[in-house]
Write a protein that binds this DNA or RNA. Structure first.
Length: 239
DNA sequence: GCCAACGTTGGC
DNA sequence: GCCAACGTTGGC
């Protein structure tokens, strides 16, 4: 159980059908349940699916109408104690986990939650990214091996990710299981990706909308097919 | 429903 | 360690 950060945030919207650029937050339409009493914005977000949000704030969106098949997940490779809990979970830690598999618990951001719950499916490949460290970047590849299911840490009052507002018959937070596939042939740093991203902004290249830069705080991000292949090819080139 | 205050992420 | 960016909270 990787101690993920308590909340990794970012805004993204996963749009199902059409994607209009901009949606700021995904807006779950309240499925059937209309809210009685006042509901916080966050709670509103809690519901279910999303559609293009009303207030478009203008932001480019990488949200394609497609459903995603690749992802990027962030984790901290260095020891850091938060609320007396170790936040470290590196690619090596995944490697030494039983069956090289771990649940991805502790994510407390609605957009990330929606991806975990609704879109990440077994067999899909995922970049493993090291954040909050000296050299942030992509270190390896893992794979979703279990689709979204309730994150048990939300119900454990002793866990730092405990959420007293979540009920067992209507869990708020979800996680998937991921299994190590392989390390990258070479480390691909954030700096390198950033350079390419900036070039691609001008040239219209494949990394122009990379989530690491367009949604820098989202800890579970979709990666398009084009982004995935492009980054994989970087493996075979010199840094 | 707005928005100021606050908290967190995560690069640098 | 700093702090910009941005999500969340809660008063009104």
């Amino acid at each position: 159980m990787p101690p993920k950060r308590a909340s990794l945030k970012r805004k993204i919207s996963h749009c199902h059908n059409d994607c209009d650029e901009t949606n700021e937050q995904d807006v779950p339409e309240s499925v059937g349940k209309t809210k009685k009493k006042s509901v916080t914005k966050a709670e509103k977000n809690n519901t279910t699916k999303s559609f293009p949000s009303e207030k478009s704030k203008s932001k480019p969106s990488a949200c394609a109408s497609q459903s995603y098949k690749h992802w990027l997940i962030k984790s901290e490779p260095n020891s850091r104690i938060e609320n007396s809990v170790e936040m470290k979970f590196s690619f090596n830690d995944l490697q030494s986990s039983p069956n090289q598999t771990s649940s991805w618990d502790g994510v407390r951001n609605y957009q990330a939650r929606n991806f975990l719950r609704d879109q990440m499916k077994p067999g899909q490949d995922v970049f493993f990214y090291h954040s909050n460290c000296k050299e942030p970047g992509i270190v390896g590849i893992c794979q979703v091996v279990k689709e979204g299911y309730p994150d048990h840490t939300q119900f454990d009052s002793k866990n730092p990710h405990f959420d007293s507002s979540s009920q067992k018959d209507n869990p708020k937070w979800f996680m998937v299981d991921v299994k190590l596939v392989r390390p990258l042939k070479r480390f691909i740093s954030l700096a390198e990706l950033k350079g390419l991203h900036q070039e691609h902004l001008k040239s219209g290249g494949p990394l122009q909308k990379l989530g690491l830069f367009t949604r820098p705080r989202l800890s579970v991000q979709p990666i398009t097919d084009e982004e995935w292949s492009y980054i994989l090819e970087l493996e075979n080139k010199d840094a």
